[in-house]
Design a protein around this nucleic acid. Structure first.
Lengths: 217, 217
DNA sequence: CATGAAATGGACTATGTAGTCCAACCAGTG
DNA sequence: CACTGGTTGGACTACATAGTCCATTTCATG
């Protein structure tokens, strides 16, 4: 059993790392479903089958655990989105990305919303460190969208004067707002509609560009 | 002092109504700033200068108080939006509406987000009654947006085939998503950008329509 | 003014929850 | 094997918080 470096700098054996991971995954699940505030440490202990001293051995307190959960979801979501968006360079690909998110959310009828969005809403005005981490994650996610749009632009599907990063912000806003409306309505429809409007806007920019290209040639 | 009917059916003197209102406004302020979960009944008592028995005289428990807060913000927001949107029938008017929201949110650097959105995110998966109430409020808010878009359409600024209610959903999504991103970034910019994209889309539909009208004439 | 219902003050209880402490237990290393 | 530092179990404390209870006061109404 070799000791490695934990995220916070302390030494950690593989056994300890396993425990830590169990705590975080259990906490993440609970906090996603019940919310951060409604999740107690005892809940986490019961769900992970771990003793209190283990939890406090790995985390300074609930805030630290919440931050670990933020990081956990961050890695998960960014990984998923990197896989989904990393090589997309067509509007059809963007639509498939939309379909996957909508379908996934429809399995829960919109409940719980976006993991990052829900955490952000609950934590942003209470824990500044967590808020900053979430802001960075949103930025990173948005960068993936910007990448797609830039590839569209480079491929001539979008006119060069389009500000792709602002378009990505708009798309991200539509996505998060859609999650929230779907969560409240317990119905994915508003989420789908919201993203669709953003995509329709992007498509209209593309269509206008093609027309003008055709006129020029 | 005459007795009147309270929202929940019990009789209420004007004195009692005043106390009830003080409790709700104090609770609303606290829950907006600190979040629902982080607001304790003692907080509310301290802020409103009311005794515990008074609170329990008017509300069955914390859940009931939360629902009253939802109704309170609902009335407030819907009133504000009715004033702001009720007679708007131009895109310029829609832009002024956007400016007011953005400016108002910039005073807090985006903190706390939208009152209804924050409540919805925190309460939707925990209190079904509150969730339904919030869903209805969002619907009502959206109807005001639909009204504006329909007036645009009736005035010929938008083509008749545009589905104004879906456009309103998209606008609402962009608004709520924008609030969330701004809250997380502590910066209004993403909110402004997000709404701007929705408005740009609406404008592009309008512009396309005008062009085709001009071609026809 | 008499009366009863509404309204109020505030102590009290029960319980949940974050956090502490220490003794015991593994697992590599010299 | 002994030693050391990470790891674990779980009882324990301190405190916060939701909710209860009852005596008292205020006030609308006959």
């Amino acid at each position: 059993m070799t000791t490695t470096e934990a995220p916070d700098g302390r030494r950690l054996t593989t056994r300890g790392a396993k425990t830590r991971a169990r705590i975080v995954t259990a906490a993440a699940e609970l906090m996603y479903v019940k919310g951060v505030g409604a999740t107690t440490l005892d809940d986490v202990l019961a769900a992970s089958g771990v003793s209190k001293s283990q939890l406090y051995h790995h985390f300074a307190g609930k805030d630290a655990l919440v931050r670990a959960v933020v990081a956990h979801f961050g890695e998960h979501v960014i990984q998923r989105e990197r896989d989904a968006l990393g090589h997309v360079s067509t509007i059809a690909g963007l639509r498939r990305w939309r379909d996957a998110l909508v379908q996934n959310n429809s399995l829960r009828h919109g409940a719980y919303g976006c993991a990052l969005g829900s955490l952000a809403s609950e934590v942003s005005d209470h824990d500044d460190l967590a808020r900053r981490a979430l802001a960075e994650l949103f930025t990173e996610w948005q960068k993936l969208l910007t990448g797609v749009l830039r590839r569209l632009q480079d491929g001539g599907a979008l006119p060069p004067e389009v500000a792709v990063d602002q378009l990505a912000t708009g798309l991200m806003g539509a996505l998060q707002g859609g999650y929230l409306l779907a969560q409240t309505a317990r119905d994915v429809t508003p989420m789908a509609t919201s993203i669709d409007m953003a995509l329709a806007h992007i498509e209209s920019l593309a269509a206008g560009h093609v027309e003008s290209q055709e006129r020029r040639s």
